[in-house]
Simulated scan of single mutants.
Amino acid sequence: MKYRRLGGSGLKVSEIGLGSWLTYGDATEKDTARECIRYAYENGINFFDTANAYNRGEAEKVMGEALKEFRRSSYVLATKVYFPMDAGPNDRGLSRKHIMEQCDASLKRLGTDYIDLYQCHRYDAETPVEETLRALDDLVASGKVLYAGISEWTGAQITDAVGIGKRLGLRPLVSNQPIYNMIERYIEKEVLPVSEREGLGQVVFSPLAQGVLTGKYKPGQAAPSGSRAANDRTNFVINSYMREDVLACVQKLEQLAGEIGGTLSQFALAWVLRQPGVSSAIIGSSRPSQIKENLGAIDLVLTDEVLARADEILSEIEGFAPLR
Rank of each mutant, 00 (worst) to 15 (best):
E58I: 00
N43H: 15
L168P: 13
D113W: 07
R171L: 14
E244T: 15
E58W: 00
V174P: 02
L192W: 01
S195H: 04
K108E: 12
S240G: 06
G10D: 15
E254S: 13
K61W: 01
G262F: 03
G201S: 08
L146K: 15
F70P: 02
V203C: 12
V76I: 15
D91W: 03
W271R: 08
P207I: 06
Q202T: 04
L67K: 05
A270G: 02
V237C: 03
Y180M: 09
E312L: 09
P288Q: 12
Q157F: 09
C120Y: 01
G7E: 08
I187W: 02
G163F: 10
V129H: 03
A229L: 15
E126S: 10
H98Y: 14
D31V: 15
G163A: 14
E35I: 03
T132L: 01
C103M: 09
S175A: 15
T112I: 09
K30Q: 14
K108T: 10
R34G: 08
N46M: 07
A33I: 08
L6P: 04
K218L: 10
L18F: 14
G25E: 01
L6G: 04
L256A: 13
Y217I: 07
G220F: 10
G215V: 01
A270Q: 01
I37M: 08
G155E: 12
S106C: 07
F47D: 00
P224C: 12
L107F: 06
E131M: 07
V140H: 02
L110G: 03
P219W: 05
V140G: 02
G111M: 13
S225N: 10
T28W: 07
V272Y: 01
A78V: 11
P224V: 13
Y241W: 13
E152Q: 13
R274E: 14
L269S: 05
R324G: 09
V212C: 04
G25H: 00
Y24P: 00
R287H: 14
G199N: 10
G93V: 08
D104W: 04
G201Y: 02
P276M: 11
L300M: 13
M100D: 10
P276V: 05
S285G: 11
L314C: 10
W271H: 08
N90K: 15
W153D: 04
E184W: 08
V62Q: 02
I282Y: 00
R122C: 10
E58T: 00
